[in-house]
């Protein structure tokens, strides 16, 4: 039964992808992209990846769509129609697809427990996590402790990308030098009754759910990446409803910058503290006299750092796009 559902979802995924490429109105394409992400999240869930499904739903369908729409409002909504010679590209793409499909026959089948990927380090993670870290969610354990270096690297990529966006978008527009029009008062969706009422009702629950995902990440699907994205989505919803000015009064730029830098700093400091306490960088066992408790403490701290940085970075990126219109 589940396989029929999976095949159905995957087929829809292909159709949506083709529709995105074919759509000439970019607004339609971005909306289809949100559907694509949601379908992808459902597929991830069927494939037992609950954490990844939650991330994809919060980020792919939520934040990415908002950022694309922000960029669309600054550029153009319609794609220019051009007659292109697509023959060469089409044949290259078809040939590569056929080659890739031919190559899949060498791969182990879906769900094969003998596949090489399940033989290496994964069984060790599954058998040792209860003894060494004693938290139920193995994904969080691997993310926060066994592969903490990786996660630190990813946090710094988010940090760097956020700085890049701010760097590109905070410079003044050279074309607009003469017409220094006063920024129009952005009123958001305040005058639309239904978004206002529904949004106001949803906002506290979105933030509450974000906090739950943050602090329950050790026991169920969740963690800093998802929680940061969910809380950022909530605050972006607030900004869309009440106008950017009100949102910036609630979470000013200085707070966002402190979050982006502070989260990454908190993560790194946990590593430095473990070094001073005689362990390796990011080896949390030394944080407490009981190594298992030390591991749990370390994971909670670094997950907090991840959540703060991701939330701050996504908010800063959203506001950078939203503020650009006023220049």
């Amino acid at each position: 039964m589940i396989i029929i559902f999976a095949v159905f979802l995957l087929t829809l995924l292909v159709i949506t992808a083709i529709a995105i490429v074919r759509a000439e109105n970019l607004f339609v394409a971005v909306m289809l992209m949100a559907i694509f992400s949601l379908l992808m999240a459902a597929n991830f869930f069927i494939l037992d990846a609950a954490d990844v499904a939650l991330t994809e739903a919060a980020i792919g369908a939520g934040v990415t769509t908002v950022i694309f729409l922000g960029a669309l409002s600054l550029t153009a909504e319609n794609e220019k129609k051009v007659e292109l010679s697509r023959g060469v590209a089409m044949s290259i793409v078809t040939a590569t697809t056929l080659l890739l499909i031919y190559a899949t026959f060498e791969k182990p089948k879906l769900g094969d427990p003998e596949a090489p990927v399940h033989q290496h380090v994964a069984p060790w993670y599954l058998s040792e996590t209860p003894k060494l870290i004693d938290i139920p969610n193995v994904v969080t354990a691997v993310l926060g402790s066994f592969r903490a270096y990786d996660t630190l690297g990813e946090v710094f990529v988010v940090f760097t990308a956020c700085i890049g966006v701010l760097f590109l978008l905070s410079a003044k527009n050279p074309a607009d030098k003469q017409s220094r029009r006063t920024p129009p008062e952005s009123i958001g969706l305040r005058h639309h009754l239904i978004p206002k009422v529904v949004g106001r009702l949803l906002f506290p629950f979105i933030v509450l759910f974000g906090l739950y995902v943050q602090f329950h990440g050790e026991y169920g699907p969740g963690g800093g990446f998802q929680a940061g994205a969910i809380i950022a989505t909530g605050i972006i919803l607030f900004a869309l409803l009440e106008g950017e000015k009100t949102a910036l009064a609630a979470v000013p730029h200085s707070v966002m910058m402190a979050m982006v830098a502070g989260g990454a700093l908190l993560y790194t400091m946990v590593g430095v503290v473990t070094m001073f306490m005689g362990g390796n960088f990011l080896d949390y066992s030394v944080l407490s006299s009981n190594p298992v408790f030390g591991q749990q403490m370390g994971i909670i701290l670094i997950e907090a750092g991840v959540g703060i940085t991701v939330c701050g970075a996504l908010l800063a990126i959203f506001h950078a796009f939203a503020a650009r219109e006023n220049y």
Binding site: T64, I67, F68, Y125, V139, A141, T151, E154, V165, A313
Partner: peptide, 24 residues
């Protein structure tokens, strides 16, 4: 297997930041 999940979980977040950089 938890390992591919960890890799992709972080890759999704990095993906949105790099897309935002491209859009900027």
């Amino acid at each position: 297997n938890p390992l591919p999940q960890v890799l992709i979980l972080t890759a999704i977040v990095v993906g949105v930041s790099t897309t935002a950089l491209g859009l900027a």
